[in-house]
Amino acid sequence: SASLEDVKTAVLGLLVILQTKLYTLPASHATRVYEMLVSHIQLHYKHSYTLPIASSIRLQAFDFLLLLRADSLHRLGLPNKDGVVRFSPYCVCDYMEPERGSEKKTSGPLSPPTGPPGPAPAGPAVRLGSVPYSLLFRVLLQCLKQESDWKVLKLVLGRLPESLRYKVLIFTSPCSVDQLCSALCSMLSGPKTLERLRGAPEGF
């Protein structure tokens, strides 16, 4: 439990870093931090981490990651405290083949985003970082199938509809809506759902 406290501190630090690096160059920093966060949550489900502190780590990670939004130009952003989304000039939600690297070039400044813009690109060529939603999407499927803490599952179920409104997140990387529907149906009809959940409301 003591070591998990250190892990929790590290994860919180990564969330803060991602919130900053999403809007700064090099964009590969945001890509790497995002991948680290998603990989860490995957390990929770792989090794069945069920301690309360592990659940709190997942809760905080999902609470942040499910706020990711994308505009029509595929640029990622996060809402501010007033709910207004600021889109990044440097990070996009497109999935890119590994051989192309985590970044790609664009020939010049991008068109203005639909929300308040981030800082304008400084040079004639900007390297865009790929932060594909499919990585998070796979972890969300694991959550629906394996999550043991009701608070975490409730958060994910509550945030998913709003995330799905931003269709560009889903359609720019390999996210299977069929698998999502299947996971939701299995969660509702499967007898093991109630068996594994802690803290579920009576009558769920």
Rank of each mutant, 00 (worst) to 15 (best):
residue 1 S to G: 07
residue 2 A to W: 07
residue 5 E to Y: 06
residue 7 V to N: 02
residue 9 T to E: 13
residue 13 G to Q: 01
residue 13 G to K: 03
residue 14 L to C: 09
residue 15 L to E: 13
residue 16 V to Y: 08
residue 16 V to C: 15
residue 19 Q to L: 03
residue 19 Q to S: 09
residue 22 L to R: 02
residue 23 Y to Q: 05
residue 24 T to F: 08
residue 25 L to H: 15
residue 31 T to Y: 11
residue 32 R to N: 03
residue 32 R to S: 04
residue 36 M to Q: 05
residue 38 V to R: 01
residue 38 V to D: 01
residue 39 S to P: 00
residue 40 H to V: 02
residue 41 I to K: 00
residue 41 I to P: 00
residue 45 Y to R: 00
residue 48 S to P: 07
residue 53 I to C: 07
residue 55 S to Q: 08
residue 56 S to Y: 11
residue 57 I to S: 01
residue 58 R to K: 02
residue 58 R to P: 00
residue 68 L to I: 13
residue 69 R to P: 02
residue 70 A to N: 04
residue 70 A to I: 04
residue 75 R to M: 04
residue 77 G to S: 05
residue 81 K to M: 12
residue 84 V to C: 10
residue 84 V to D: 12
residue 87 F to Y: 12
residue 93 C to R: 03
residue 94 D to W: 03
residue 95 Y to G: 08
residue 95 Y to L: 12
residue 96 M to L: 13
residue 105 K to I: 13
residue 106 T to N: 12
residue 109 P to I: 15
residue 112 P to I: 14
residue 112 P to S: 14
residue 116 P to T: 14
residue 120 A to T: 15
residue 127 R to G: 14
residue 128 L to S: 10
residue 128 L to T: 11
residue 129 G to K: 07
residue 130 S to I: 14
residue 131 V to W: 05
residue 137 F to A: 03
residue 137 F to L: 05
residue 139 V to M: 07
residue 141 L to I: 14
residue 146 Q to A: 12
residue 148 S to G: 13
residue 148 S to T: 12
residue 148 S to A: 10
residue 151 K to P: 14
residue 153 L to I: 07
residue 155 L to T: 13
residue 156 V to W: 00
residue 156 V to R: 00
residue 157 L to D: 00
residue 159 R to D: 01
residue 162 E to R: 07
residue 163 S to G: 07
residue 164 L to K: 00
residue 165 R to H: 08
residue 165 R to Q: 13
residue 166 Y to H: 11
residue 167 K to P: 09
residue 167 K to G: 04
residue 168 V to L: 06
residue 168 V to I: 09
residue 168 V to C: 09
residue 171 F to D: 11
residue 172 T to R: 04
residue 172 T to L: 03
residue 173 S to I: 03
residue 174 P to N: 10
residue 176 S to T: 05
residue 176 S to W: 05
residue 176 S to D: 11
residue 177 V to I: 09
residue 178 D to V: 05
residue 179 Q to I: 06
residue 183 A to L: 11
residue 187 M to E: 01
residue 190 G to H: 12
residue 190 G to Q: 14
residue 191 P to F: 09
residue 192 K to Q: 14
residue 197 L to V: 09
residue 198 R to N: 09
residue 199 G to I: 06
